[in-house]
Every structure is written in C-alpha cells, then in structure tokens.
Amino acid sequence: MVTAEYVIFVTIAGVMLGTFYGLATIGLSFTFGILRILNSGHGSFVMIGAYISYWCFALLGLPPLVSSLLAFAVGFFMGFALYHGLISRVLGGPELISLVLMFAFGIFLQEVAKFSWSASPRGFTWGLGSINIFGYEYPLTRLIGGVVSAVIVLVLYVFLFRTKSGNAIRSVVEDPEGAALCGVNVSRVYALSLAIALGLTVASGALSTLFVSGGIEPYMGDPYTTRAFAIAVLGGLTSPFGSFLAGLLFGIIENLSYMLLSLANVGNPFSMTRFLTFAMILLVLLIRPQGLLKR
C-alpha cells in the first residue's frame, strides 16, 4: 500500500541519493567542460574511491568521512599524473583517441583492482543506526553522505567563484586563447582541473559506501559510468553545477521509478531501473541535446 508518507519518504531518500549522484557526476562535466575530454572510464575512479574507503575502514578503522579526504588526495594526484603522462599528448587530436585512451585507462584500473584485491565483492558496515522519517527507518549514514556531498559541492563553488585559480579555470572555459593572452597558464589550468575532477570523483566513490555498504568489486563502476552520463546529459554536459542539479533530479527519479517498478511488478526492478537509465540518455539526447536545465 502506497501512502502519501511513503512517497514523501522515498522522495527525501531520493534527494539524499541525488546530492551524492550530483557529486559523483560533477567531475565528469568538469573535465568535459574544461579539457573537452570525455572521461569514458569515469566509473573506475568511483570504484577506486570505494576501495580506499573499504581499506581505510578495514585496516585503520577510519570512517568514510575521513577516508574521502584521502580519496580526494589520491584522485588529485592521479589527475596530475594522468594529465602530464598521457592526456597532454592527445589534447587537440582526434576525439576518438582521447575517448579510447580514457576507456582503456578505466579498464586498466579495473584490472589492477581485480589483480590486487580479487574480483569477489567486499563490504563493511559503519553502523550509526537510523532515524525515523514518517514511520520509515532511514540509515543515518545515508543522511551524512547526502549532506557531506552537498558541502563538498559548495566548497567547489566557493573555490571557482572566489579564488584566483577558480577565476583562471573559468576564464579558460570561456575562451582558452583569450585566457592565454591574458597571462593564464592554460596547460596548468588543464592539469589542475583534471586533478580536481578526478579528486571529486574518487572522493564520491569513498562516500558511495555510505549508501551501498556492500558490493565493492572491480566492476562496480560500470553502472556509475552510465548513470553519470545520463545525469551529465540532463545537466547539459559542460556545466558542473548543472550536473549537480541534474543529479538531484535523477536521484529522485531513480528512487520513485524503483518504487513504481516494484509495485507494477514488471520483472526485476533493480535491472529495469538500470535499463531505464540508458533509455533516458537516448530520450534526453533526442528531445533536448543541450540538456534539460539549459535555456
């Protein structure tokens, strides 16, 4: 039986999940908006973050909140290394090359994870209990995950609009050549942007363990890739904050559609939700290729 309270509860849960999805997607649109490179291996960076969170908890007893900072640092470093090692060599070349390069890098991360930590799923529980929303139990960790995601996005906003480096990044988005003429080191901005983008993505992977406590395995990133693409397309692909809002929307849609699919009893709702994600990408690209949230 579906009551109004239940729908509200599902929506609130969707908002929390949505802020997390927003954070998990921001890195993708950040990279595409600034470097014009589509990170086709996006999900693998989420997976690395989840493993960092797992090992920090299992070995050191650190909760995901702390390990997300470490995850950000790891992603940040990876971004710099990746930019100077590979990306800078293919910038400006055919789009196909950078797409294949990032795809191959994603596969490489998956295989390294599988080689080092085996393919069997792992998980851990950071038991904090749950709170009561309209008579339904909601795990406290998810609430924390949603709020922390929102805070991180706020920090990014302040960085982009209130600091000198942030202004440099925004000027490169507007016009790379013009920015270079005004004395902005465009190559440094590219490296910094990729580092921030991957840092955020890996950090979101660490926070993902607050929502799904199990199922940490090398290929867990693939659904995140599809999802992030759907969200980024909804938000117009090049705008990080558009992606965040689209993520919020997507979290609500996903939760509600899961609820409806379970009620309608058409097949396995878990798989069907994932199929609908793909169908949604095509639909949005068909109707509004510039994104739902852009004018």
Binding site: L38, T226, F229, A232, P269, S271, M272, R274, F275, F278
Partner: peptide, 25 residues
C-alpha cells in the same frame, strides 16, 4: 550527435540490453 555525445548515447547500450534481458527474464 557529434563526437563525444555519440559515445555517451551508446556507452550504455551494452549495459542497457543486458539489464533488459536480466530484468524482464
């Protein structure tokens, strides 16, 4: 669609079809 947008539209094709087959049985 052009370039990267095409890749976005089709990257989920594999995952989508797999989930459709698993989901509907």
């Amino acid at each position: 669609l052009k370039g990267a947008y095409f890749a976005i539209a089709t990257i989920g094709l594999n995952e989508g079809l797999k989930n459709l087959i698993e989901g509907t049985g």
